[in-house]
Design a protein around this nucleic acid. Structure first.
Lengths: 347, 347
DNA sequence: CTGAAAGCGCTTACAG
DNA sequence: CTGAAAGCGCTTACAG
C-alpha cells in the first residue's frame, strides 16, 4: 500500500491516546475515564472494569502536562548533587533514585558544578518540579533562599546550613567525629592528626568539631600544626598526610574527614613506606563501597545513606501532601564505626 | 497587621506569575508577552523592551506544563544508567548533565536496577520526556523496543544492541581491546590472560573480541583456560585473577575488560605477593578517575566520555528538532591507551 | 453513578 | 505590529 501517505516502515508507531479515546473505546464519557484513572469511589464496578481493560489493552497513560496544569503537581522531585569526584554522591543518587521511584515520582538531577542550583531555581519558577532536595549547599548558595521564597518544599539532605526555613536530614557528623577520637584514645594514641575539608561546609566542619571536642575533653587538644586543610579530594589527602608526617613528633593516628581524603592519605603513606596501621592509623568517613576494597581496607564511619534518602524523600512528600508537621525538622541519623585494617592492629 | 488572614511570616512567599500578569503590568496583551518570550520577530522594540523589563523585575518564567501542552515538548531528556557500583556511570552522568544543561534542557535520571527501563517507558507514554538516552541496554530490554515504537527519539549511548532502529554512540571497544593486545605483544609477552564480563553486554564483549582477534592474528590465540568470566565488579576481578594465576604456566599479562575488574585483580595480586608489573601486567578499560590514584596506577584505555555525551545529546536534540540525518547512525569514538605503573616496567 | 462543561497557562493561527 | 480567541488533555465542581 505505497499510496497511503505514510512513509513505509513507520506504520508501527503508536498514536498517542487521550482519555477521550479511551472513553470512546469504552463507551463512557471522558470524565468517567478520568475518575477511573484517579481511583475515585463513585464508579460502578462494571464501568470501572471496562475502562481498566481498555486502558490496559491500549497502554494508555494520562498526559503528564495536562494533569500538571490542573493539579499544579508534576510528580517530579529535583535533586542537586556535587560532582562525582566523590563516590559518596553516586551512592546517594542511587538511594534517592530508589526512594523517589518508590514514591511513584521521577527524579530530575542537577550537578551543582554545572550550574545546578540556578537551574533548580529556574525549574521551581517554571513549575517543572514539585520540590527539590539539595545535597551540597554552601553558605554562598544565594539561589537556595530564593528557591525557598518561591514556596516550593525544599529539603537539605547531606550538607545543611543553619537558619534556612526548610527540612533537613544529615547524619550525626559531630558524634561520628567524636566516636573516632574516642576509638583512637581507647587504643592508647597520644599524637593525633586531622586532614580537614574546606571551611564552611557542614559535613566536614561538624566531623572536625566533634573530633576536636572529644580530644579536648580527654585532655589531648589537637595541636595547631596537626591539622591540614584542603578539598574533599584524593590529592588533598595525599598532600595533607605528607605535611603532617613532617612534624616532629609525627602523629600516630590521623582522621580524614571523608573517605576519598583518606584514600589519598593511605596512598601517600604507602609511597613513603610508612606501615599502616603499625606506625600510623588512618580513619575516614562515609564508608563508600571502595573503603572495603583490599587496596584500602579503611576504617571509617558508615553514613546511613539509604535511611537518609528515605527520610529526605519522605519529608518532601509529606510536605507536598500537606502531611508535614508544623515547624521544620532537622533529623540527625547516627553513623556506625566500621573497623578495618587501616587501624586494626592493636598498638 | 495580624488580621490580614495570612499566617505571619509567610508573606514573603512569591505568588506564581502568569503571562497575563506580565501583560497587565506591561500594558500589552497576553499574546504579545508570549511573542516576546518566544523571541518572535514582529514585535516593536519599545514593547519588547517594556515586557522584558517587567519579566526581569518579577522573575517571571513561563509555566512549563502549559507550554508543553501546546508544543508537545517538555525540554526534558531521560537518562537510564546502571548502578553506581561502576564509577564509570557517575562520570557519564556528570558529562551528560553538562551537555543537557548546555542544550537548555533538564535531565530525568533512572537507575536501571531500580526499574529504570519500565519507568522510562512510562515517562515516554505520559509525554513526560522528549527522548531517552539508554546507557545500559542488555539483550533482554523488552521495554526498549516498546519505547522506540512509541516514536520518541532514543539514543543508545555506551552499551549498544544490534538491530534496534535508533541512534547509537559508543567508544570503539573492539579497537581498544586490540590496542591492548598489540601493546602486550610489542613488549614480548607470550602468556595472556583475560578477565571478561557477562556474555551479551556489548562493551565487554567487543573489547574481548578485539583482544582475542589481535592475539590470534599475532599467532597467540587466547587459551581457553586463560579466560575468567564474571560481573563488572571488584570481586569478580579478584576471583578471576586468583583463578588465572593457578594455571601453569600462569599468564604474564592480563586484560580486564573494565577498570573496576582490574582493581580487584590488582588487589588480588597484591594479596598474593605477585609483583606488578614485574611478574604480571594488568590492564583495565575506561580510565575512570581512580585509575590514576597511586593505589592502582592502572594502565587502561581512556573512553572519551565527554565526547560521547556531547554526541549522544546532539543526536537526540537533532532528532527532536527535525535536523537528524535520514538513517540511524552508530558513531564509534576512538579510545586512547594510557600507560601507568601496572605495566610500565620494561620486561 | 454518570455526563456536560469550565478552566489550568500557554502558543499560534486569524483578523485587523 | 498587536489583540482576541481557539485549543492542547486533563481534573473536578456542578447537575441530574
Amino acid at each position: 500500500v505505497p499510496d497511503d501517505g505514510a512513509p513505509a516502515g513507520e506504520d508501527q508507531r503508536v498514536a498517542k491516546l487521550t482519555s477521550r479515546d479511551i472513553a470512546t473505546l469504552s463507551g463512557v464519557s471522558q470524565s468517567t475515564v478520568s475518575r477511573v484513572v484517579r481511583g475515585y469511589p463513585h464508579v460502578s464496578d462494571a464501568v470501572r472494569e471496562r475502562v481498566l481493560r481498555t486502558m490496559k489493552a491500549t497502554g494508555y497513560r494520562p498526559n503528564a502536562a495536562a494533569r500538571t496544569m490542573r493539579t499544579r503537581l508534576t510528580g517530579v522531585i529535583g535533586v542537586v548533587v556535587g560532582r562525582v569526584t566523590n563516590p559518596f554522591y553516586p551512592e546517594l543518587i542511587d538511594a534517592l533514585s530508589e526512594e523517589i521511584g518508590n514514591a511513584d515520582r521521577q527524579m530530575n538531577l542537577w550537578v551543582s558544578d554545572h550550574g545546578g542550583e540556578p537551574s533548580a531555581l529556574g525549574a521551581i519558577r517554571q513549575g517543572a518540579v514539585d520540590g527539590v532536595i539539595y545535597t551540597t549547599v554552601t553558605a554562598s548558595s544565594s539561589s537556595l533562599s530564593e528557591a525557598i521564597r518561591q514556596g516550593a518544599p525544599i529539603v537539605l539532605l547531606n550538607r545543611t546550613l543553619a537558619g534556612l526555613p526548610c527540612d533537613k536530614v544529615s547524619s550525626d557528623n559531630h558524634e561520628g567525629g567524636a566516636t573516632i577520637a574516642r576509638y583512637m584514645l581507647r587504643h592508647g594514641h597520644e599524637r593525633f592528626g586531622l586532614i580537614a575539608g574546606p571551611v564552611g561546609i557542614s559535613t566536614g566542619a561538624e566531623r572536625e568539631e566533634g573530633y576536636r571536642r572529644a580530644l579536648l575533653e580527654a585532655g589531648h587538644p589537637l595541636r595547631d600544626d596537626m591539622c591540614a586543610r584542603g578539598e574533599f579530594t584524593h590529592a588533598s589527602g595525599h598532600a595533607g598526610l605528607l605535611q603532617l608526617m613532617q612534624r616532629t613528633p609525627a602523629p600516630t593516628a590521623v582522621f580524614c574527614v571523608n573517605d576519598v581524603i583518606a584514600f589519598g592519605a593511605l596512598d601517600a603513606a604507602r609511597a613513603q613506606g610508612i606501615p599502616v596501621p603499625e606506625d600510623l592509623w588512618i580513619v575516614g568517613y562515609d564508608d563508600i563501597d571502595m573503603a572495603a576494597w583490599e587496596a584500602f581496607s579503611l576504617t571509617t564511619v558508615r553514613q546511613p545513606v539509604g535511611e537518609m534518602a528515605r527520610l529526605g524523600v519522605k519529608m518532601l512528600v509529606d510536605r507536598l501532601e500537606g502531611r508535614a508537621p508544623v515547624p521544620f525538622r532537622h533529623e540527625r541519623l547516627p553513623g556506625e564505626l566500621i573497623v578495618r585494617n587501616s587501624t586494626a592492629g592493636r598498638r
